[in-house]
Nucleic acid binder design. Structure first.
Lengths: 233, 233
DNA sequence: AGTCTTAATATGTACAGACATATACATATT
DNA sequence: AATATGTATATGTCTGTACATATTAAGACT
């Protein structure tokens, strides 16, 4: 059976998704191989391959060489969330952005930071604390440690003009990073810097970025009460 | 100048990433076009295309027809986080998984749920409250509303045998969904169901899934204290 | 100067054919 | 019975060519 021309990979993808959603192909079921589908759709195998790879990336198909392609039984949906550049996030809401530094000095880091950044004891770290402000109200506070060995240039940056984050993304490209999302309670120092009462539940992001095996920076972001991070699957 | 053989797309990708990280190609800079790179690397243009598309997907390159490919100035890093199937998350830590239902009955939903699911007033909703347990300790509580019009079969499911979530992922495939991550404070009812004291900050996920324009289910997950959701970029 | 048309160009995609590679399954060996 | 080896197969990828499409830039025409 040769279906009407499905001769581009987006069309193949749509057809495949439709068959999965309509349960014509049920969860766990082995679907026809690429060559057969190419024949059925009247297109090249490469086109089917492109489409199936795309669907597999989204988690709806499991593919294995020789074993074939089957519909995922419990599709692990992958949400891609773009890590916000705070200023852009605020400006995209048509709010005015500003930024203030609480302190910025070279300090001995606490143990958990040193462990997290996998440092030996020799590195000098810049401890940088600041707040991003939307329409005059504290939006998120940032508590950052920067490895001066990894980015010596940062010692001469004027942080009244550009935020540490933006300087770093522009000047210290990283190869990889890890992120943890969590909830934290507003203690006195957090509450004061966010201009709120203590005891509230706050959304927090902890991120460490690396240049290969060298830690560049570890930052802890604590958002204002009620903040939600949203995305789609 | 023809570099030594870089004749597969992973190698091209690695070379491109290396040039970006080493700042041989600086942020904002226009990189050579696909044909030139293919010539330089000694491979086909399609191979370069595959690699550049991959790098662009990760956010490090901006590509535009005719305009060419340039290094992203502020790379919006995309973190892909796989939405956890709770049972698997627990079992992957070698903890024993169990599951208990607090209540499961057809109810009139509160307004914000109805709005969120974009329902008119006629639909009947199943309100399902449960807890997922790891090694005997409450791991996450789930407060779920299910649109019976969208999945009538669920009325006959025995939730003592399979969790609502797992039944739904297996039997009610969705086309899209939206997710919000936030922090919430443990009120009395949450604290009781999680077996903790009130007042703690808890990580929460709110997810609504759709079959095209029909809402299938809206679920609110509230995790045990200290829970972190982790990923990499 | 301003607007429309046209050509040039870089990426996007399709195709057929080929080879590479992982691996399930069958068969042979210990 | 357990282990090693071989083979068939489905996906993974590369190549070279071709055409599609978006978009910039130049040129023609008000």
């Amino acid at each position: 059976m040769t279906t009407a021309n499905i001769n581009n990979w987006k069309a193949v993808e749509a057809e495949v998704l439709s068959r999965i959603h309509s349960r014509q192909w049920e969860p766990g079921q082995l679907i026809p191989n690429e060559s057969d589908l190419a024949l059925e759709f009247g297109c090249a195998r490469a086109t089917v391959n492109r489409a199936l790879r795309s669907v597999a990336e989204s988690g709806l198909l499991d593919r294995k060489r020789k074993a074939g392609t089957r519909v995922a039984t419990n599709p692990v949906r992958k949400a891609t969330l773009s890590i916000p550049v705070i200023r852009e996030e605020i400006e995209s809401r048509n709010q005015t952005y500003s930024y203030a530094v609480f302190s910025s000095k070279i300090e001995e880091p606490p143990l958990h930071i040193r462990a997290n950044m996998r440092l030996n004891s020799s590195e000098r770290l810049l401890h940088h604390q600041s707040v991003h402000i939307a329409d005059g109200k504290p939006y998120v506070i940032s508590d950052r440690w920067i490895n001066l060995e990894a980015v010596p240039d940062i010692a001469h940056v004027d942080f009244s003009r550009v935020s540490a984050n933006e300087w770093l993304v522009a000047n210290a490209p990283f190869t990889n990073g890890d992120i943890a999302f969590s909830a934290t309670i507003a203690n006195d120092s957090i509450a004061e810097r966010l201009g709120i009462k203590g005891g509230e539940a706050l959304f927090a992001i902890d991120r460490t970025t690396w240049n290969n095996d060298t830690a560049i920076t570890a930052v802890s972001l604590v958002f204002h009460p009620g903040y939600q991070m949203r995305t789609v699957v």
